[in-house]
Amino acid sequence: MGSRSTWSRSKHLGKGSYGSVFLGLHKNGTMFAVKTAKLENSNSLVKEKKILKHIGNSPEIVRYYGDEITIEKGIQYYNLFLEYASYGDLLKLINKVGGRIPKEGPVQVFTRMILDSLCCIHAKGIVHCDIKPENILVFSSDRYGCRCQLKIADFGLAKEASEAALESKKYAFCGTPDYMPPESVALFYKYETSMDIWSLGCVVLVMFTGKSIWSGTDGKPLDREEIIQILASTETMPEIPKEMSETGKDFLGKCLQRDPSKRWSAQKLLDHPYVSPFSLRNIEFLKEYPTAVGVKRSRSY
């Protein structure tokens, strides 16, 4: 058990279903993210640690630095140490620049980054199960020729590929409704990497349009039960914008297939012209991103 003699918690960064996230400060001045939960409620954080260790140290995935149990005012806490995303998450980025990514070029670049992360996860036999903008973090990096890089984070709901969904639960897929694939509302199914591909297609739509995937005739987002009804009882598909490029429409067509066997894998999608290195253009917006959101580069733990 640790005494927090070498680190301390700083500002509160956010709160999730399985604990709170803080900025951690090491005594040597470096920064990292700390996910904290009471020890008796830490099963999901411990699971996330195991998955991150299984995936290994990859530049495409948020990095795991260690963990520690602390005792504070007589209460035991589990602390998971992770790479700090000084730019926040993809949803924050979208909101900061007006509610949608202003050009399709940056959407292509970001999609490529997310695909690189998915390839790494799927190669290890892991299905993330909750791909959404809030779980895609933005880091300082020059790797893609711009000032930031996206990495997938938050593996609390992740499953092993082909793992059976819990038969006792009517809808075992516990992801976010807007990004849930149709098969996730079936009574019996197995978790497959193709689920994340549907969710990827939904993220691309949100980046491009800035709108909810499923909306009513009044334009307001539908609630969970309404979305489940659409997925389970209709053939309705998310609307692909007419103003999107033809290659973009084709890319989404490879992701948003109701039949999961017809969706392209993340590895195959890397070869799609929409995200090929030769098509990644108009990234001037990305180079201005750090100034736009008013953040500075920081050292990572």
Rank of each mutant, 00 (worst) to 15 (best):
V109A: 07
S194K: 13
Q267G: 10
G74D: 07
K296N: 14
L25I: 13
C120F: 01
W264Y: 14
R4D: 09
S168H: 14
M180L: 13
A123K: 14
V293F: 00
T217F: 15
G98C: 12
K50W: 03
A165H: 05
L200V: 04
R4A: 15
L137C: 06
S44I: 14
L256D: 00
S261Q: 13
C119N: 11
K169C: 14
G125R: 03
H26Q: 06
K53N: 12
D142A: 11
N79G: 08
K47A: 10
G253D: 04
I227D: 01
N57Y: 07
K151M: 02
V138T: 05
F139M: 04
E72Y: 14
L269I: 04
K262T: 11
S276D: 11
Y84T: 02
V109K: 03
V34Y: 05
V275P: 00
T217Y: 12
V295S: 13
K151I: 05
S276K: 09
Q149W: 06
G210Q: 05
I121R: 00
Q76S: 14
L93Q: 08
E167V: 10
F173V: 08
E239V: 12
Q229C: 12
G56V: 08
K96L: 10
K159P: 11
N79Q: 11
P106W: 02
L45T: 01
V185S: 04
M180T: 08
T6A: 15
T234C: 09
L80K: 05
P177H: 12
T291A: 15
G66E: 09
N135M: 04
T247M: 12
V62R: 00
L118C: 03
F285G: 01
G294Q: 04
S86W: 00
D142C: 08
T6N: 12
K50S: 14
Y179M: 02
S10R: 13
V21S: 04
R299G: 14
K190V: 11
L13K: 03
S184Y: 06
L270H: 05
R4T: 03
L137I: 06
L231N: 05
S58L: 02
V206D: 01
K262C: 13
Y301L: 13
K96A: 15
E83I: 02
V138E: 08
Y274W: 13
S233C: 15
L25E: 06
L90E: 02
L80C: 10
G56Y: 05
S194W: 02
K103R: 15
V185H: 01
P290Y: 09
F173P: 00
F110V: 02
D89G: 03
S42M: 05
S20L: 04
V46I: 14
T209M: 06
S233F: 13
R263F: 02
Q257N: 05
R297I: 11
I71A: 09
E225H: 05
M180G: 06
